[in-house]
Each structure stands twice: as structure tokens, then as C-alpha cells.
Design a protein around this nucleic acid. Structure first.
Lengths: 243, 243
DNA sequence: CACTATCCGGAGGCCTGCCTCCGAATTAAT
DNA sequence: ATTAATTCGGAGGCAGGCCTCCGGATAGTG
């Protein structure tokens, strides 16, 4: 059913070796977390995940001291796919096809997993690994954008923040329609691409700066369970990092 | 500052006359609710609203037995604006201008009030009044759409569910960017209109049926604090209707 | 002023979710 | 088999939100 790698690789990441039962539990928790996050989003109850993994809540906290850690571990593979998407799109020769293929790929990733939808419309300031991936992906995306613009197929006032706007929009549509009105996301994405590919229109209202965008996404992450530790004391919601 | 009608009209809606202090409190609660919902969305804590109105929590519950009631009362004026929007757009002669003006108006309504943003992307099955407004508005919108299509300015595969898709998308963008990256909503709307006005593209993936859409929005309303009373006993979250 | 219907509001019960503590159980090495 | 380290997991503390109860305050009337 589920590919159960995951405990294999953590053996070689500097972590101490786990006892057999601990390792088994870790895998069960990860599998449960993948399912629950995919279905209910990143705000799902950690106790639900522990229950689905048939494990005490303490065991979950022992292995993943904070929600971020669990999220990062549970979505690692899909985050990798997200990062790859830009790279493999760059391999496509036609600029517009490359761009649209990228957009389709990442939006499909959102459509298939509410956790990913949530994740891709916020920022995990804690996780260095994810952030690095995001940055290199961003460079690739810039290239995709430039090429498509140069080919005259992408509107000139397009900026990379517009991709984020689409991710936010798509996350919401996925959230609302995933179970009851599937396919809505695909339609939204097609519409967005039609807008992006339009070159005969007066220029758009100015986009937010990337700093504004980042700040907004970050404060969203904070508002959800995944707060940053900007003030490492107590957070406003009893949500302080256990470090 | 705030226009404080509101208690006036409930005098003539069959409700028993309120004592002076009760009436004052009712107004204070409504004013507070307007502010808090606008800033934090419809899931805001009712205790916060009571506190901001300088009123005990019991007083709030006495006046507005459920969250829906409070929401309906607090957003009544803006809901009226929403309903008017379609009607006054119909008065514009140019079909495309009429359509875009409608879209701009309602999306701006969302941008200015997180509560409205939330409300417009769900369904309040309890409130008959709101639902009636929504239905007549829907008729008007259909006319707007037909006219714009007939004029060849709106894509032929456009359906009214696409407006809802935009409302959902815009609600999310508003939610994320309202404080930190304002103006994002305007850009999203402009993009959407560019997509809607495109007539040279292959047809879109099929839209959700309106029944699917309604069901999705309704289950969203349930997931938020505003559950329907489909099973009038206990709800899954201790959130049973006080009726 | 007195009196009654009405209203107020905090205390407190209930729930859910987060997180920690510690005695009991399990592993694995000798 | 013994033993020591490791892990388990439920109990329980804490906080926030929802909602109700009821003793006390208040408005409005005669």
C-alpha cells in the first residue's frame, strides 16, 4: 500500500539508532500523519494521528517534538516532488509548455493532499531544509517565467508572486471542494493559465512585493499551528516551541 | 463613526420591545461583532466580541442564541449591499462593463471585511432571509452572464459557479494578505476577469454542478462554527443548535 | 417611593486540543 | 536469565471556547 521507506533514511541522518519497537512506531506515526494531513489539512489534531497510528500521544511527541517536525517528515516526499517540478519543467523546450506544465504539476500536488495545499500557501520558517528547496525552486521558476515571457506567451506584467497567489487560491478551492465538488481545482488552474497567457490586456494592479508576500505567508503559518519562534518565550497561544 | 441603525429595525420585526439597557447592549454587541468579524473572520471567539462590547457573555447569548444569528445580524447591511450589487450592475448598459462592475463590487466587499469574505464562500442554510437574497441575486447574475456572453465578451464556457470559484479564491487571498500585502486581492480579481474575458482558448475542464458546489459550501459552513442542523440532535462537535 | 418584570454577568460545567510526567513494559546486550 | 537502558502510554495539568444557571442589579410603572 504505502511505500514505507522513511525510517531507513533517518538511520543515516546523524540520529541515534532507534530500538526496533520505536522504529516501528515512528513509521506508523508517519503513515498515519500522511493520511490525516492529506485528508484534514495541517491543522489536524495530533491526538487523532496518534490514535490512528495506535500509539500513545506521548510517543508521538517523543519522536516529533513539534507539529512542524511531524509535518516536515510526513510531507518530505511530496515537498521533494514540488522542488523537482520546477527543475523537470525546465527540461521542456517549449517555454509556454514548460511553464504550464510546472503550474499544473504543483497545483495537482495541492489537489491531491490538503496538507500540501496548506503547506504551499504558507511558510515554514523553522525548517531550514524546506526553505532551501524553496529558494532553489524559486530560481528555476524565475527562469521559466523569463523564458515564457521572452517567447511572448506569458503576459509581461507577470511576476512570481502571481504563482503564489494562485497557490493560495487553489489551496482554498481544494479545501472547499475536494470531497464534494472535485475537478473544481482543475478548472481554476485552467482559468488562471488563461489569465497568465493573456498579452492583450491593460496592465494589472501592482503585485505585492515579495517581502510583503513572505510576511503574509509567515503570519499565516503562525496563525495556524505552525508558529515561528520569533519571540522564543511564550507565544500568544500557548504554542511555544519545545526546541 | 459607525452608523448605528440596527436596533431600530428590529422593533418592527415582530420581536418584543426591548428594555432601554437591553437595547443599548444589543447595539454594542452588534458594533463589536462587526469589528471583530471584519478583522478576524467568522470564526472569531464570541467571548472576544462580548468583551469588546463590554458585556457579559450571557448577554450576548441571550440576544443572539447562536453564532449564525449574530453573523446574520452583524453582516445584514453588507449582505444587502451584496444583493444590490447584481441589481445595480444590471442597470449598466454595456454588458461587459456591467459584468466586471459586479465582480469588482462583490470582491471589494470581501476585501474590506474578512467576515464577508468568509460568508460569501459558504452557505448559511439556517437563515432564510439571506438565502432568499442569494437566490434573487443569482437570477440577476445569470442575466449579467448571458448578456456578456451574447456580446461576445465573456467566454462561452463560463458558468455562474465560476463566480463562486472566484469568491472562494478571493476569500483566501484576502485572509492571507489583508494586513500584510494589501492589494493582492485586486490583482487576483483583475487576473480572473482577464481569464473570464478570454474567448480564444480551448474549453475549460468541466465545472462542478451547482448542486456539488452548494453541498461543498454547506459542508464548509458546517466545518466552521456555522453548522446546519441537518441532524437536530447532537452534532459531531458539541455544536448543537440551541433552538 | 415601591414593586415587579426584565435583564445582567460572572461562575462554572463541559468539551477539545496541547503537552509533560512517571510507573510499567519492552528490548537487547551480557 | 539478568539487567540496564530505552521506550511506552495513560493520567493529568493547562488553556481556550462554548454555553447555562441563578443571585443580584436595573428599568419603568403607578
Amino acid at each position: 500500500m504505502h511505500d514505507q521507506t522513511g525510517s531507513q533514511d533517518q538511520v543515516r541522518t546523524g540520529e541515534r539508532q532507534l530500538r526496533a519497537d520505536a522504529c516501528r512506531n515512528r513509521d506508523a506515526i508517519l503513515a498515519a500523519a500522511k493520511e490525516v494531513f492529506a485528508e484534514h489539512g495541517l491543522e489536524a489534531s495530533l491526538e487523532d494521528i496518534a490514535a490512528k497510528a495506535k500509539v500513545g500521544i506521548a510517543t508521538l511527541y517523543r519522536r516529533f517534538p513539534s507539529r512542524q517536525h511531524l509535518v516536515a517528515a510526513a510531507l518530505a516526499e511530496k515537498v521533494a516532488k514540488y522542488a523537482e517540478a520546477a527543475e523537470s519543467a525546465l527540461a521542456i523546450s517549449d517555454p509556454w509548455t514548460a511553464f504550464t506544465s510546472y503550474v499544473h504539476t504543483i497545483c495537482e500536488l495541492q489537489a491531491g493532499d490538503r496538507g500540501m495545499a496548506d503547506l504551499m500557501s504558507m511558510t515554514l520558517p523553522a525548517d531550514e531544509h524546506v526553505e532551501r528547496l524553496r529558494r532553489t525552486a524559486h530560481n528555476h521558476v524565475s527562469k521559466l517565467i523569463d523564458r515564457a515571457k521572452a517567447a511572448g506567451q506569458l503576459r509581461n506584467d507577470f511576476v512570481s508572486e502571481d504563482v503564489i497567489l494562485l497557490l493560495i487560491a487553489n489551496a482554498a478551492v481544494v479545501h472547499v471542494t475536494r470531497s464534494r465538488a472535485p475537478g473544481s481545482s482543475r478548472r481554476l488552474v485552467a482559468l488562471a493559465l488563461d489569465a497568465f497567457g493573456r498579452t492583450d490586456t491593460p496592465s494589472l494592479p501592482p503585485p505585492p512585493s515579495s517581502a510583503e508576500m513572505a510576511s503574509a505567508m509567515c503570519s499565516l503559518a503562525a496563525e495556524r499551528g505552525c508558529g515561528a519562534d520569533n519571540a522564543p518565550g511564550l507565544s500568544h497561544k500557548g504554542q511555544l516551541l519545545p526546541l
